[in-house]
Design a binder for these strands. Structure first.
Length: 424
RNA sequence: GGAGAGGUGGCCGAGUGGCUUAAGGCGCACGCUUGGAAAGCGUGUAUAUGGAAACAUAUCGGGGGUUCGAAUCCCUUUCUCUCCGCCA
C-alpha cells in the first residue's frame, strides 16, 4: 500500500511512476486526494465536538465534588447532545476512511524510475547471461529423463492429488533434498538466519504482504478455518516482523526459509505446465531482507549477486532479466528475474524473482525504524527473492547435465549427496 | 474439545468510574561527578491523525455497549498461559 502522505506530497511524481506500468492513474490518485480532504474535514469537526464534550465532562466532575447538582444536570443534557452529534460525525468519518482505504489498497506499487517501460515479458531487459549448455538435437526434455531414471512420478502424483503434484522418488528425492540443504547452508554463510515458518497463514497476513486483494485466486484456501496455504515463504517470514520498530543497529534483518509453496495456477495449460514447468506444489528456499530505505537498492544488488553465485556454483546456464513496468508484480518497485535455460524446450525457465518492495509491504505491516540521525520514525524497506525454486532448477540440471549414461550431479552439492551421477 | 487465569508504554509492572498517557522500575539519551570508567545524582524519554505552531483528538489486545465521563463496569471476539481430555 502506498503511503498516503507521499501521495499528498508528490502526487505528480507518483502518477508519473505508475505510468511506467502502462496505465493512467491520475484519476484514481485524484480521487484519493479528494477523499483525504474529506477525511480531514470530518476529523476536524469530530475533534472539535469531542473537545467540547471532554471539557464539559471535566466541569461536571468538579461540580459533583462541590455538590452543585443543579448546574450539573444542565451540563449533562448539553453533553448528551454533543455526544449524539459526535456519533454522527464519527459514522461519517468511518465511511470516508473505509472508502479511502479501499482505493488506496487498489493502487500497485510505484516502479523505480529506472524500470523500463513496457507491456509484457517481451519488453523485459536481459542484463546478464552466464554459462553454456549442450544444445545438440539429441538432448531430451526433463520429463523424459525423469521417467527414464525413475526419479519423478508425474502420473501417480496426479492420481493421488491432481496434476501439478509430482512425486519425487529415490535419487530424485535425494537430489531435491541435497539442493535444499545446499541453498540453506549457503544462505547461512552469507548471514541469513534460517526459519521454518507456518505453511498456512490467516487473511491478515496474506493482506500484509500484498497477496490479498490482488492475487487472492492464486492461493489455496481452507474455508473452515479461513486459512491460506502459503504461495511462498515470503508471506509468513515477512509477517514475523510486523508492528516492529527497529533501531539502525538491528538492520538489516536477513532471513532464509525453506518451504513448500502452493499455487492454484488457474488458467495454465498445455506445454506451459508440462513436466516441472509449472506445479501446484513445489519446494523453494526464500531469502528476505528488511532494511533502511536508503540502503534498499544496494541490498537488491547484493541479493542479485547472491542468487547469481548459487546458479554459478551449480554451473547452470542462466540469465538475469530486469522486468519492465507491465510485467512487474503488484507489490514490487523493481524486480530481477533469474531464468535457467532448458535446452530441450529451447526456452528460459524462471527460477528466482528478486524484488525491492520499498515501503509497500512495510506500510501494511507497520514495520518501522528510527532514523539514527534525524530520530524520525520511518517505514522500512522490504526485499525478497527465491534462492532458489527447486523444480525448474531440477529441470535444468536434468537437461543441462545429461549424458548417455546418466545425469551428472553438480560438484557444489557433493557434500549433501552420496552419489555423483543419476543412473538407471 | 472442557475448565480457569490473563493481555497496560521499548521491556517489566501498578492501577476497580473523573486532573491517569497512565505510578514505580528497567532500558535508552543528555548533563553533573571522575584521571578514565562503573556507581551515584539530575533531566528527558509512547504512537497516530490534523495543525506553520501553540495545541487538539484518538489509542491500556480487537469490536460494541452503559455513563456527562471507562484502562477500570457490561457484552462479544481474538490471542497467550495453567489444568483436564485427545493425540504425532
Amino acid at each position: 500500500m502506498l503511503e498516503l502522505n507521499l501521495i499528498k506530497k508528490n502526487s505528480a511524481e507518483i502518477i508519473q511512476k505508475l505510468a511506467i506500468r502502462g496505465g493512467d492513474y491520475s484519476q484514481k490518485i485524484n480521487d484519493i486526494l479528494d477523499l483525504n480532504e474529506k477525511r480531514i474535514k470530518n476529523q476536524q469537526a469530530l475533534d472539535e465536538a469531542l473537545r467540547e464534550s471532554n471539557k464539559i465532562g471535566q466541569l461536571i466532575g468538579q461540580l459533583a465534588k462541590v455538590g452543585n447538582f443543579e448546574k450539573l444536570e444542565v451540563l449533562k443534557k448539553k453533553a448528551t447532545q454533543i455526544k449524539t452529534k459526535a456519533k454522527e460525525l464519527n459514522n461519517l468519518s468511518n465511511i470516508t476512511i473505509k472508502d479511502l482505504e479501499e482505493k488506496l489498497v487498489s493502487i500497485p506499487n510505484t516502479p523505480d524510475l529506472s524500470v523500463p517501460i513496457g507491456n509484457s515479458a517481451n519488453d523485459n531487459q536481459e542484463i546478464y547471461r552466464w554459462g553454456k549448455s549442450n544444445k545438440s538435437s539429441q538432448i531430451k526434455p526433463h520429463w523424459e529423463l525423469a521417467e527414464k531414471y525413475d526419479i519423478i512420478d508425474f502420473e501417480n502424483g496426479s492420481h493421488i492429488t491432481g496434476s501439478g503434484f509430482p512425486i519425487y522418488k529415490g535419487m530424485g528425492a535425494k537430489l531435491q533434498r541435497a539442493l535444499i540443504n545446499f541453498f540453506l547452508e549457503y544462505n547461512n554463510t552469507k548471514g541469513y538466519t534460517e526459519y521454518i515458518p507456518p505453511y498456512f497463514v490467516n487473511e491478515k497476513s496474506a493482506f500484509n504482504t500484498g497477496q490479498i486483494p490482488d492475487k487472492e485466486g492464486m492461493m489455496y484456501h481452507i474455508n473452515e478455518d479461513n486459512l491460506f496455504a502459503i504461495p511462498t515463504a515470503e508471506v509468513p517470514i515477512t509477517n514475523i516482523f510486523k508492528n516492529k520498530r527497529f533501531t539502525h543497529k538491528e538492520l538489516p534483518i536477513k532471513c532464509t526459509a525453506y518451504s513448500p509453496c502452493f499455487r492454484r495456477e488457474a488458467g495454465s495449460y498445455g506445454k506451459e505446465v508440462r513436466g516441472l514447468n509449472r506445479l501446484h506444489q513445489f519446494d523453494k528456499v526464500e531469502i528476505v531482507q528488511i532494511c533502511q530505505p536508503e540502503k534498499s537498492y544496494e541490498i537488491l544488488e547484493e541479493m542479485v549477486s547472491h542468487v547469481s553465485e548459487l546458479l554459478k556454483k551449480l554451473n547452470l546456464e542462466f540469465r538475469i532479466v530486469k522486468l519492465c513496468g507491465g510485467d512487474l508484480g503488484f507489490t514490487a518497485a523493481m524486480t530481477y528475474d533469474f531464468e535457467v535455460y532448458s535446452p530441450a524446450q529451447k526456452k528460459w525457465l524462471e527460477v528466482s524473482s528478486v524484488s525491492n518492495f520499498e515501503t509497500f509491504q512495510a506500510n501494511r505491516l507497520k514495520m518501522k525504524y528510527i532514523n539514527n540521525e534525524t530520530k524520525e520514525i520511518q517505514l522500512c524497506h522490504t526485499l525478497n527473492g527465491s534462492s532458489l525454486a527447486l523444480p525448474r532448477i531440477m529441470a535444468a540440471i536434468l537437461e543441462q547435465n545429461q549424458t548417455d549414461d546418466g545425469i551428472i550431479i553438480p560438484k557444489a552439492i557433493k557434500d549433501y549427496i552420496n552419489f555423483n551421477k543419476i543412473t538407471v
